[in-house]
Amino acid sequence: MDFASFFANYGLIILLVVLLVFMFWSSRRRMQKQKLEQEAKARETVPGSEVLLQGGVYGTIVEYDAENLDEPAHVEIAPGTIIRVHSQAILRVVNPVTGIVTEDEFIDAEASEEGYIEGVADGEITSISDDQKRASAEKKDNPEV
Rank of each mutant, 00 (worst) to 15 (best):
M1A: 09
M1G: 10
D2S: 00
D2C: 10
D2T: 04
F3A: 11
A4K: 09
S5V: 06
S5Q: 12
A8H: 05
A8W: 01
N9E: 15
Y10F: 01
G11D: 11
G11K: 06
I13S: 08
I13R: 13
I14S: 09
I14K: 04
L16E: 00
V17R: 00
V17G: 07
V17D: 11
V18C: 11
V18W: 08
L19M: 14
L20H: 00
L20D: 03
V21M: 13
V21S: 03
F22L: 12
F22P: 09
F24S: 13
W25G: 04
S27C: 10
R29G: 07
R30W: 11
M31A: 15
M31K: 14
M31H: 13
K33T: 07
K33L: 06
K33A: 03
K35N: 12
E39C: 03
E39W: 04
A40Y: 05
K41S: 12
K41M: 14
A42T: 02
E44T: 08
P47F: 07
G48S: 02
L53Y: 07
Q54N: 08
G55P: 06
G56I: 00
V57C: 03
G59L: 02
T60F: 03
E63M: 09
E63A: 15
Y64I: 02
Y64W: 10
Y64C: 04
Y64R: 00
Y64P: 00
E67V: 10
E67K: 07
N68D: 13
N68Q: 02
L69R: 07
D70T: 13
E71K: 13
E71Y: 13
P72D: 14
P72R: 10
H74K: 14
H74P: 01
V75D: 03
E76A: 05
E76Y: 04
E76S: 04
I77N: 05
I77V: 12
P79S: 15
G80I: 06
G80W: 04
T81F: 06
I82W: 08
I82Y: 10
R84C: 06
R84M: 09
V85K: 03
V85S: 05
H86S: 15
S87H: 02
Q88L: 13
Q88T: 15
A89D: 09
V93K: 01
V93A: 03
V94E: 06
V94G: 09
N95S: 13
N95W: 03
P96H: 02
V97R: 07
V97F: 08
T98N: 07
I100H: 13
V101N: 01
E105C: 08
F106H: 12
F106N: 03
I107R: 05
D108S: 14
D108H: 07
D108L: 10
A111T: 15
S112P: 07
E113Y: 11
E113P: 04
E113L: 10
E113R: 15
E114A: 04
E114I: 00
I117E: 00
I117P: 01
E118V: 12
G119E: 03
D122M: 03
D122T: 11
G123I: 06
G123C: 02
E124D: 12
E124H: 12
I125C: 02
T126L: 05
T126P: 00
I128K: 12
S129A: 08
D130C: 07
D130G: 11
Q132P: 01
Q132I: 14
K133I: 02
R134V: 01
A135C: 08
S136F: 15
A137N: 15
E138F: 04
K140H: 04
K140T: 11
D141F: 14
D141L: 15
N142S: 10
E144D: 09
V145L: 13
